[in-house]
């Protein structure tokens, strides 16, 4: 085995933790727990960013880490908790697939993502290039979570988890995006979250439920 420095081993461990949390979110049906898992994922992401910044002396990564901490670990989960309390949605309905099938599909996705990442990792020259596969897997798993859930709340949480994966992917492939882009994305996510919060109330007012199933038909049933 090639010897890897301890800091990078820690980054790798964080990456593995991110993947694990993605699977936990995939199988979790309690919305409150989902928010906690999302916050934990953000915290791990923040830690990984910080460690990588320390290791590589990329100063803008410190700012990204601070941004992640304030936005994804503190503010967004707080906002989500508030929304959950006010909307009174604590459980998602049974997802479209049962949990064992979801898990096994998730495994296939991970295999696919790891295969996909291999040529990218070969081209990249960053210290954490081996974790690109994990980042892609996190993105795809969040995608799958959005597909298999019915309630708007869990879909939004899936969306935020996908953003986590994208951020981690950018970090491991090229030490993060330029700061302007990163700030822009962070702002986008923030605004999207606020707008979606308003949307939730609208959807509920229309259909008395947050089940997006109702949005599929184009017009009122006779």
């Amino acid at each position: 085995m090639v010897h890897i420095p301890l800091l990078l081993q820690l980054v790798n461990a964080c990456a593995a933790g991110l993947l694990l949390l993605s699977f936990a979110m995939l199988s979790q049906r309690r919305v409150v727990t989902l928010v906690y898992l999302l916050a934990t994922q953000g915290a791990l992401l923040c830690l990984a960013t910080f460690l990588l910044a320390w290791r590589t002396n990329q100063h803008h990564l410190y700012i990204s880490a601070a941004l992640t901490l304030s936005l994804k670990v503190l503010f967004l989960p707080w906002l989500l908790h508030r929304l959950i309390r006010r909307l009174g949605v604590y459980w998602d309905t049974e997802p479209l697939l049962n949990s064992s099938v979801t898990m096994l599909l998730g495994l296939l996705i991970v295999v696919f993502a790891f295969g996909l990442a291999q040529p990218i990792a070969a081209l990249s020259s960053t210290a954490a290039r081996s974790t690109i596969g994990i980042a892609i897997a996190v993105i795809l798993l969040a995608f799958m979570m959005m597909i298999t859930r019915r309630k708007a709340m869990s879909q939004v949480i899936g969306f935020l988890s996908m953003e986590n994966g994208l951020f981690f992917g950018a970090m491991s492939a090229t030490y993060g995006m330029p700061l302007v882009v990163e700030l822009g994305v962070a702002l986008d996510v923030l605004v999207a979250m606020l707008v979606l919060g308003v949307f939730f109330f609208q959807i509920r007012e229309q259909f008395d439920s947050l089940d997006l199933h109702h949005l599929e038909s184009l017009k009122e049933k006779p």
Partner: peptide, 24 residues
């Protein structure tokens, strides 16, 4: 119980994949 065992299998395979990817 099968669900629990599927989770166990999942963890084990994830371990295997992570080992292949990270070499650790």
């Amino acid at each position: 119980a099968p669900e629990l065992m599927a989770t166990a299998f999942l963890f084990a395979v994830l371990g295997l994949l992570v080992h292949l990817l990270l070499g650790a």
